[in-house]
């Protein structure tokens, strides 16, 4: 019996064979590096970067405590505060993305096919250029006496330069800008499946536009909104480029903190531990989401 015959007769073997390249790819490029990081997080730091192969929980202790002179542990909230800041910024970003993304998606699905395709194309255009380049463009826009300041003064809305750059506001503008498409796309796909006769039925039964939106459109597009929130919130937590360039690296977010540990601080185990603290929180959020919206909600975008 040849190998081909074997695959022809056994569907299970065929399935295994077909899925193995994908599994191999994930194992090699994701599971292995992540596992490496997990191991690193339980090792000791070496003075000039790298690790000493000796088991240690020091990194996780360092996340919550600092050592006093007599080696006793004192609670230290500095890192938790950075996590808190990141969560708040990511939360506000997500909220603003919903506020901007939902009406955009609603408008998109109501356009005739041709225009809809053009507009969808426009939504995805930012993906064509590197995030770094686009963020530098925002520096030019937001810097003191930059285009935004100039425009606002010319319109008479402000009298003096706002100097938005290197502030939380600039950071937020940059984050919302880069994540809005990730909100628009899933909401769009769930609204696209919405039967607009249901909206007509709501009008017919006496609902105003706002009530129809609240009682019919929003509940039925909830899976899309939730998927969008995850796609924005999770990567936003670990955002690195935007806070570094627009926030000026002054007000740290998790991404910058981790980068620092691998860079200037040369504390790889701590950087790895910070990454895993973030990963744990994200996994918790995802599990909560799928429990709320049912199995398959994430993948199907229902």
């Amino acid at each position: 019996m040849s190998v081909m015959d074997y695959f022809r007769r056994s569907p299970a073997a065929r399935r295994t064979a077909l899925i193995s390249p994908a599994v191999g790819l994930i194992v090699f490029f994701m599971v292995v590096p992540l596992g490496l990081m997990l191991v690193y997080s339980f090792l000791q730091r070496a003075t000039y970067g790298g690790v000493i192969w000796q088991v240690s929980f020091e990194s996780y202790i360092q996340f919550l405590f600092e050592r006093d002179l007599d080696d006793s542990l004192l609670f230290n909230s500095a890192y938790l505060q950075i996590y808190g800041r990141s969560f708040i910024l990511a939360g506000i970003t997500t909220l603003l993305c919903v506020v901007i993304g939902f009406p955009t998606a609603l408008y998109l699905v109501q356009q005739p096919e041709r225009r809809r395709n053009i507009l969808m194309f426009l939504v995805t255009i930012p993906f064509w250029t590197n995030l770094l380049v686009r963020t530098y463009a925002w520096i030019l826009l937001l810097r003191r006496e930059g285009l935004v300041d100039f425009g606002l003064e010319w319109l008479g809305i402000t009298q003096e330069p706002l100097g938005l750059l290197y502030s939380d506001t600039a950071n937020l503008i940059g984050l919302v800008y880069s994540f809005v498409p990730f909100m628009v796309l899933p909401i769009y796909s769930s609204l696209e499946k919405l039967d607009f006769r249901l909206v007509e039925a709501a009008y017919d039964l006496g609902a105003t536009r706002l009530t129809a939106l609240r009682r019919v459109i929003v509940p039925l597009s909830m899976p899309g909104i939730a998927a969008g929130c995850i796609l924005v919130f999770v990567p936003c937590l670990g955002a690195y480029v935007t806070p570094e360039l627009l926030g000026g690296g002054k007000a740290l977010m998790i991404g910058n903190l981790i980068q620092q540990q691998f860079g200037a601080s040369q504390n790889w185990p701590f950087g790895a531990a910070l990454s895993f603290a973030l990963l744990a929180i994200v996994l918790f959020a995802l599990v909560a989401y799928s429990l709320r919206f049912g199995r398959g909600a994430l993948t199907e975008g229902r």
Partner: peptide
């Protein structure tokens, strides 16, 4: 439409899938 004292039975029924039968009838 919401100011007209007429109601419609749609070809596809257009029942709200996220509501129960009772909630559908109660909507109007």
């Amino acid at each position: 439409p919401f100011r007209r004292p007429v109601n419609t039975v749609f070809q596809s029924y257009a029942l709200f899938p996220h509501m129960t039968v009772g909630q559908n009838i109660a909507f109007g």
